[in-house]
Amino acid sequence: MTRLLVFSDLDGTLLDHHTYSFQPALQAFQALKTFTIPCILNTSKTYAELTQLRNELNHQDPFIVENGAAVYIPKHLGLPVDASMEDHGDYWLKSFGPKRQILIDLISEYKTHYRFQSFCDMQAQNIVDLTGLSEANAQLAMQREFTEPMVWQDSNIALNTLKQALEPQGVQLQKGGRFIHLMGSDCDKARAMLWLSARYETHFQEAVTTMALGDGDNDVGMLSKADIPVVIRSPVHAPPEVPYRHDAWLTDGYGPEGWAQAIDKALIKQGIL
């Protein structure tokens, strides 16, 4: 039996799509702690947002922010460090793309050609209206470091044209649950998951089994590269397809209820429960 690493999306997965509650998943989340199984949050959320959520969950493991743009590793875990990582107070920081301001400067050149609104153009109330977040949480969501979310108001054809224009500049547009995310081409939930998994294998000096849970299109890459891919059923959209992974699990429950079911199933299959 290899060591298990759990990588989890948040919105619509560990957190309820409508209420952002994690209560239905809390018992399963605590079970991972009991068995010292790392649960790495892999999300579109920002460092500022996760600071508050991790306090509520008493989360002590690494976390991946802004759709794979950066990994934060708590120093107390003692995972291996290299020259590509930055000192960030209590964490080691590994970033995979440019800083946000570079992206804002780049996309501003296209505002006369395409219809979209990016976070830098919005007030907190706009984010509240779009997401249902409280104003305080909307302020946290706006504190981005490596990506720039956008509300796309143009056609799909225009979106593909812009994608092609940005690719030579090392920038991509990735579809999330509510927004289109502008980010570096190397920013990806799957890449961050694999990079961190390799760190754990070096630390443990043995192979790990990766389990990934997600509900949206921006989770497909992560799910496709995981040893145990879990698609969390959503109340608002059809389950995303994971190409070439006929072994992907699809939960019966929605959001955090489905998350808990999948964790329990994995612990039984791994012989832990």
Rank of each mutant, 00 (worst) to 15 (best):
D11W: 13
P74F: 09
Y47T: 00
D186G: 05
T13S: 14
C187Y: 07
K94W: 14
T210N: 14
P74A: 08
D252F: 12
A124L: 13
E66R: 02
L130K: 07
G214A: 00
C39L: 15
Y200H: 06
Y91T: 12
L250K: 10
E86F: 10
M183W: 00
L50H: 11
R191E: 03
K269V: 04
V230G: 08
Q123T: 13
L32Q: 11
E148K: 00
H17L: 12
Q172V: 02
G78M: 11
S84N: 07
Q123M: 13
P256F: 01
D90F: 11
I232E: 06
Q30G: 09
N58Y: 01
Y91A: 08
Q123P: 05
A262I: 07
F22T: 07
F119M: 02
W152K: 03
Q261M: 05
G12M: 03
A48S: 12
H18L: 11
A207P: 02
L50V: 02
L196S: 12
C120W: 11
T112N: 06
E257Y: 05
M85R: 09
V65I: 14
A226K: 02
L10G: 07
N160L: 05
I228M: 07
L57I: 03
A262K: 07
L41C: 05
S234G: 13
G97R: 00
T19L: 01
R3H: 11
L77W: 08
L223V: 08
E241S: 13
I40T: 04
H59C: 03
M183I: 01
A212T: 04
N55G: 15
P38S: 10
A262V: 04
M150S: 05
L140E: 10
I180Q: 10
A136V: 08
I268C: 04
P168C: 00
L223K: 07
D264N: 15
D9F: 04
